[in-house]
Design a protein around this nucleic acid. Structure first.
Length: 498
RNA sequence: GAGCCGUUAGCUCAGUUGGCAGAGCACCGGACUUUUAAUCCGGGUGUCCUGGGUUCGAAUCCCAGACGGCUCACCA
């Protein structure tokens, strides 16, 4: 066996502790008590259930199972803390209860071991709710110790690479992923109640579309074609609207081949929903109720406390034009953002890139993203995005340069994107052609021409409102998690080299 | 992709001017029948991220690299 080694954050040490534990396992096996041959253990209660129902359970025999996370030995008595999904509960082992031999078997137990115990619910002198153990079984041996109990596990690299250790050690991490699960459940229930139909559409697509982003490419051997991992389900979902399903949604993974940051992971979970005979204003109402509901279901409140600042998620949310929001924050009038030249001046003044190659829409987005977005703490719908950057959205009748589109913001985070869907096949074809030109000119994120989608529109799509919501962003907003990696169990990391 | 910062015991971290590698918790041995960061006595368990270089001597200084974090760029 090699000696101790440390490799960039993940611990693989074969240190003294591991050697001791392996030796202990060998002794157990030699004695015919191999813990890994244990199969089931029927428990009667979870830790929290015992604490919450103590009054009615006091004196009862119960069976619990979990991970041993702490031990306090006192010679002829010993305390231990057992952690299960619901929390921890104290165990009390006494030699006069277990007998000398059984009590001696406690030597087999280490922090981190998985044990099942049977015993009587009681309270100790210090009023701690405890199980006085009458019998116990080692159900699985931990050859490595869990993270240290007092300081916990802080090393972010280990937290992400070995998430199980993070979940064992950090209550807050466990809480965030439970919230995430509840949020997704809540979104489903809400949409179900509104008669939306949950559907699944291809993740591997011959043509990537529905968003402006670069895709991952893969290859199908039998068909001998390249396929793209989807960057959005949008165009398939709208085909279903054409097909008359009228209210559809999908919650699923999308993949975008771009940089990683505290707000971006290459794969993330997106909710997209489409409702026929609705427009973007209908969708605003849908989103504000749905998010408020998700907060209530996952946190028990529609109010968030963020750095001492209260955020109320109940409808209605503020609605503000992109241009008004910029003017309010920076005093830059909409007129100055009408032409690329005057916008360039504004960008120069603000210290933003203002080169001749930068498009007007990009400059506006930069100004907004840098100076306005971080201040949108209260839930806000920002409207009036330029049609030029919204190739799938219907233009406003009174001003075709602007789209019937909005983005929801909470706690400074962009949660998604929504609009009245463009259902005019001819105009859609024109928009795609414009995108294709941008693509030919080097814009790798531009939308590719999708004749098959235009064909679908030619059969007639009712006026439709649609939304895309980043589930991770929503969970970040609800939990206050500072990084998207904190709400994705296994975030993308660079592989470690040996 | 660029800049800045980080990587030392199982975990959390300290490490002075370049001079034998440190603390707390964990762990091992002993004591202890109501502790809960148990306590008391004894024990340091290490590829100081990796590879070069400077030096009598490198955790420390220099160069290159790996991984991570943050900011920016990219990106909804």
């Amino acid at each position: 066996m090699k000696g101790d080694r440390r490799e960039g954050g993940v611990f693989r040490q074969e240190g003294e502790v591991v050697r001791q534990r392996r030796a202990k396992l060998v002794r157990l096996r030699d004695a015919g008590r191999d813990p890994f041959r244990m199969t089931r253990f029927d428990r009667t209660h979870l830790a929290r259930e015992i604490r919450e129902a103590f009054d009615s359970l006091e004196g009862d025999q119960v069976r619990v199972a979990g991970r041993l996370v702490a031990q306090r030995r006192h010679g002829k008595a010993a305390f231990a803390d057992l952690q299960d999904l619901s929390g921890t509960i104290q165990l009390l082992f006494r030699v006069d209860q277990l007998g000398e031999e059984r009590y001696g078997d406690l030597r087999d137990l280490d922090d981190g071991d998985i044990v099942g115990v049977e015993g009587k619910v009681c309270r100790t002198r210090t009023q701690e709710i405890t199980i006085a153990v009458t019998n116990f079984a080692l159900l699985a041996k931990a050859l490595r110790p869990p993270p240290e109990k007092w300081h916990g596990l802080r090393d972010v690299e280990i937290r992400y690479r070995q998430r199980y250790l993070d979940l064992i050690a950090n209550d807050d991490s466990r809480r965030i992923f439970i919230v995430r699960s509840r949020v997704i459940g809540s979104l489903r229930r809400f949409l179900e109640e509104q008669s939306f139909l949950e559907v699944e559409t291809p993740m591997m697509q011959p043509l990537h579309g529905g968003a402006l982003a670069r895709p991952f490419v893969t290859h199908h051997n039998a068909l001998d074609i390249d396929l793209y991992l989807r960057i959005a389900p949008e165009l398939y979902l709208k085909r279903l609207i054409v097909g008359g399903l009228e209210k559809v949604y999908e919650i699923g993974r999308v993949f975008r081949n771009e940089g990683i940051s505290t707000r971006h992971n290459p794969e993330f979970t997106m909710l997209e929903a489409y409702q026929a005979y609705a427009d973007y204003r209908t969708i605003m109402e849908l989103i504000e109720s749905m998010v408020a509901r998700a907060a209530a279901d996952s946190l028990g409140s529609t109010r968030l406390d963020r750095d001492g600042c209260e955020i109320e998620l109940s409808p209605p949310w503020r609605r503000v034009s992109l241009y008004t929001a910029i003017e309010e924050k920076l005093g830059v009038t909409p007129e100055r953002l009408e032409t690329a030249d005057s916008a360039r001046e504004v960008c120069s003044e603000l210290g933003l890139p203002a080169g001749p190659e930068i498009l007007l829409s990009t400059m506006i987005d930069n100004i907004f993203g840098r100076f306005v977005q971080p201040t949108l703490i209260e839930p806000t719908f920002v409207t009036d995005y330029p049609t030029a950057v919204s190739p799938l959205a219907k233009a406003r009748a009174d001003n075709p340069k602007l789209a019937e589109r909005f983005e929801p913001f909470v706690a400074g985070l962009e949660l998604g994107n929504a609009f009245s869907e463009l259902n005019d096949p001819e105009e859609q074809r024109g928009r795609f052609e414009q995108q294709a030109r941008a693509r030919a000119a080097g814009d790798q994120d531009a939308h590719p021409m999708d004749d098959d989608y235009v064909l679908a529109l030619e059969y007639g799509m009712p006026p439709t409102g649609g939304l895309g919501l980043g589930v991770e962003r929503l969970v970040m907003a609800l939990t206050g998690a500072p990084s998207i990696r904190d709400v994705i169990l296994f975030p993308q990391m660079r592989p470690q080299t040996e």
